[in-house]
Amino acid sequence: MNGPVYASHQGSSELNSIPPIDLADLRVLVALADFRHFAKAADACNLSQPALSARIRKMEHALKTPLVERSRRFEGFTAAGERVLARARQLLNDVDGLVQDAKSGETLSGLLRIGVIPTATPLAGRLASSLSTVHPNIRLRASSLSSRAIEQGLKEFALDAGITYLNTEPNPDMKTLPLARERYCLVGTAQLPGNGTIPLDWKDLAGVPLALMTPDMQNRRILNRAFAAAGVEPNVGFEANSFLAIVSRASAGDVAAILPRTMADMVCMDGLARRDLAELAAPPVIGLIAARRVPLLPLVAALWSHAAACIAESDLASDNPT
């Protein structure tokens, strides 16, 4: 029998069971999660606040459950709202990938969101500059975040990729590409211990007043393990979650900062001396991470292949092939 084939009655019923929710509704939910404020979320979505509230009520009616805690101001999501939000982020991320795939035969363009640990900001800047020469229409937005915040951002689809530590607190759920090993130096006034050209042993830092990153930063956890391996309890005189802050503190002369050498090259001030520290037995490796998905988003794939080409001649290329 010739002629068009129509969907079965059962298939039609399945379509009719899909809640009447569109992508704009999902974007409203994500904006509310990002801004934690009704008016700001409405402005980001180019809606009035009543229109935003109407979309939320429509979703709640369609799903037959409250999504947002009701109050004069935003108080958070219900348990069901948190689950729906996670799905909304994933669906919007997949739609973004669909759009990128549709344009993959053309010049790649769009926003690439990357989370970067503070120690890797010089590396991220160089990689972004290099990428722009190959893909000038890709806009890269780098946010300085802790390693844990980067992993969370990837899980929530708030980030597309990250530059973070790979081997100190590995996450098997992430696709990784090593980029550089991290080495350290002591930075302070001219009265640094030893004042020589031979790298300083970590045990020689016993009693030296130090300015270090805060304990929530993975860099600090790495340093704490280095001190423990040397049998030294660090004498911490100042803590901050900013390398610029600890370098500024070291410039006063009564404490010294421990910095990755690449960071010291970028932020060290006049009047400060530096002394290399002995390399750790297992140096931290910094690299790209992304959520394991097939295929990768085209923009992430472009970043990945470009970064891999940049380090193809490096001894790091064989450290982690995943």
Rank of each mutant, 00 (worst) to 15 (best):
T133G: 07
R225G: 00
L92V: 09
A80L: 02
A211M: 12
S143G: 09
V68G: 02
D254I: 02
L98E: 05
C268Q: 13
A211Q: 12
I18T: 08
R141P: 00
D101A: 15
R221M: 00
Y6T: 13
L85V: 14
N46L: 15
A24R: 04
A79R: 10
S48M: 01
A245H: 13
F243K: 00
A190Q: 14
L299I: 04
R83M: 00
A39W: 08
P19D: 03
A42W: 06
R148L: 13
L223C: 00
C45Y: 00
A312W: 03
I18K: 04
D216C: 06
L299A: 08
L154Y: 07
G97L: 09
P66C: 03
T133M: 07
L179K: 02
T65R: 10
T168V: 14
L112M: 07
Q90S: 11
K58P: 05
E14W: 11
R293N: 08
E69C: 00
C45R: 10
G115E: 13
V187G: 01
P118W: 00
N224W: 04
V5N: 01
R183A: 11
A307N: 06
R70Y: 10
S129Y: 01
E75V: 07
S318K: 07
E182N: 08
Y165T: 13
N171K: 12
D101M: 15
A240S: 14
W304N: 02
L244K: 15
Y165I: 14
L15S: 07
S17E: 12
V95R: 05
H135L: 12
A317I: 08
N16P: 08
S132T: 05
K203Y: 10
S146T: 14
A158L: 04
D315C: 00
K203Q: 05
R73F: 07
K64V: 11
R249Q: 13
R73N: 04
D96T: 06
E169Q: 11
K58L: 10
R89A: 09
A124P: 02
G125M: 08
S132F: 00
L200R: 04
L108M: 07
A230S: 10
S143L: 09
A128K: 15
V84P: 01
G188T: 11
R141S: 06
T121N: 04
T164F: 01
L272A: 10
P19R: 01
A80G: 04
P209A: 02
A228N: 09
T214I: 07
A62V: 01
